[in-house]
């Protein structure tokens, strides 16, 4: 069963509906002591890095998420959810992240005076093959809406980039952890296909 982490920030319903549409069992999880009930866990995210971390801490999520990851089960972060996996963010002042993936989260500075936030449909450039994107062509567009981007310390953690006034990290993979800066739950059939790949993944590469 898929668990969606509820830490009281924003809209979890869209993510839940997307998994329901795929016909997989899914549940909103508000209790950190229950994470091991799930085969797959998802950290969605809307709002700012700092506020989201404060909420996760208030509800005692960080240690529960670390314990879950230590079991080797798949964890997916979407948008801010992926950003929270990193060591540190700077949105509305510096704050520590979950520290699951080494690196930083910083404001985007695209070249050519492109707009920030980066809003709309854009394609990926995969760095290597991974079960998450198996059989999916690179030129498919997904929906992005964000002002900050992840800067992993390890090149190998970068699964795919996206070009917006320079390449930035659009997807990460580190052991049993994957993340997407775009919103698969808002990317219509193309996005649902990726969520399906996640549900079929056992956390091993």
């Amino acid at each position: 069963m898929i668990g969606i982490i509820d830490y009281g920030a924003g809209n979890l319903a869209s993510v839940r509906y997307a998994f329901e549409k795929l016909g997989v069992e899914v549940e909103i999880c508000s209790n950190p002591s229950l994470t091991l009930r799930y085969s797959h866990l998802v950290l969605p995210g809307v709002g700012s890095f700092r506020m989201a971390m404060e909420r996760l801490q208030q509800k005692k999520w960080p240690s529960a998420i670390h314990e879950y990851v230590a079991e080797g089960r798949p964890l997916l972060g979407i948008c801010l959810g992926m950003q929270l996996f990193f060591d540190e963010g700077e949105e509305h002042g510096p704050s520590l992240g979950l520290g699951l993936v080494p690196g930083q989260v910083k404001l985007m500075y695209p070249t050519d005076h492109l707009n920030v936030p980066h809003v709309g449909w854009n394609r990926l450039y995969q760095r290597y093959s991974h079960p998450l994107f198996e059989g999916i062509r690179d030129n498919v567009d997904y929906y992005f809406v964000h002002s900050y981007h992840c800067i992993p310390a390890n090149e190998n953690d970068i699964l795919a980039t996206c070009d917006y006034g320079g390449h930035f990290v659009a997807s990460i993979a580190r052991h049993n952890i994957v993340g997407m800066q775009f919103h698969p739950e808002k990317s219509q059939p193309s996005g649902l296909r990726i969520l399906k790949k996640f549900t079929d993944w056992n956390g091993k590469c």
Binding site: G10, G47, V145, S147
Partner: peptide, 8 residues
């Protein structure tokens, strides 16, 4: 913008 992020 502070509560929900400027992107929304």
């Amino acid at each position: 913008a502070e509560s929900f992020g400027n992107q929304c």
